[in-house]
Amino acid sequence: MDAGFILGAIDAKYPRAVMVPEISINDPYWHDWDHRPSPDKRTDGHKPFRRIDALMFESYQRTAIEVKISASDYHLDTQQKRRPWQRVTHRFIYAVPHHLNVMAPHGCGLWKIHDDGSIEVIKKAIVNKHPEPLAQDVVLRLAYRAADKKFPETDL
């Protein structure tokens, strides 16, 4: 089972939703969690960005979907990586193969995908009833994707 299969199963379960695969958001708060001493911090204006496997739009609800195939990959994920997306979406969901024995972090949902494509909701995400608007960089990435053009990452 791979990420494509998992995203396909979610797409089949939510046929009226729109899923945008592999979308990024700039993390404006990266200095808050970069605990390296000041001389070692990046000074080139670099803005780290956080990519999710899919952003699902279902009516007016936005869901960030992060696919994890292995336990080691799952355990590398951190709150700092989730934070920018949790601020602008209603839900943050982890989608994993049914055999993966993991627990969702606080606030996040956990969906297990079976070999037949069925989805088992192990834990519902806490719904953010008032997410921030989508950041301008995300809107631009969506516009470039819709126009089938490459997003100029160096301009941000």
Rank of each mutant, 00 (worst) to 15 (best):
K68M: 05
Q136T: 13
R42C: 00
I122D: 09
L142T: 03
Y74F: 15
V138Y: 11
V67E: 13
P84I: 02
C108E: 00
W85L: 08
P48M: 02
I119S: 04
D44A: 01
V96M: 03
P152N: 07
R83A: 15
A9L: 08
K112I: 02
A147S: 12
D11W: 10
E153I: 08
I6F: 06
S59R: 14
D11L: 06
I52S: 04
M19L: 15
Q136V: 12
D2E: 09
A9T: 08
G4E: 13
I65F: 10
Q86H: 10
E132W: 00
L142V: 05
W33V: 13
N128K: 10
E22S: 09
I52P: 07
G45M: 11
D148G: 11
K150I: 12
I69A: 03
V102M: 01
S118I: 03
K112H: 06
A12K: 15
A104I: 00
I122Q: 13
P39C: 06
A9G: 05
P105R: 04
E120P: 02
I126Y: 05
H90T: 03
A104E: 00
V18Q: 14
M56W: 07
S118W: 01
N101S: 09
F5T: 03
L140N: 09
P97L: 00
S72C: 06
H98I: 04
K41I: 04
V139L: 15
R145G: 08
R16L: 05
V96S: 03
A54N: 07
R51V: 12
W30H: 15
V88D: 02
D40P: 01
R83H: 13
G107P: 05
Y14F: 15
D115S: 12
P133Q: 09
C108S: 01
H106G: 03
H114G: 00
V102T: 01
W30C: 12
V18F: 11
I93A: 03
I93D: 02
A3R: 15
I65G: 06
W33P: 09
C108I: 00
L76C: 09
E120R: 05
D44H: 01
L156Y: 11
H130R: 10
K13C: 07
P21M: 07
R145K: 15
H98A: 15
N101C: 05
Y94C: 07
V96H: 04
A9E: 07
P39H: 07
H99A: 06
I113G: 01
H35M: 04
D32K: 07
K129S: 14
V20H: 14
A146S: 13
A64I: 00
R36L: 12
K150R: 13
K13W: 10
R42F: 00
S38F: 11
G109C: 05
I69E: 09
H75C: 12
W33G: 12
D11M: 06
V20G: 05
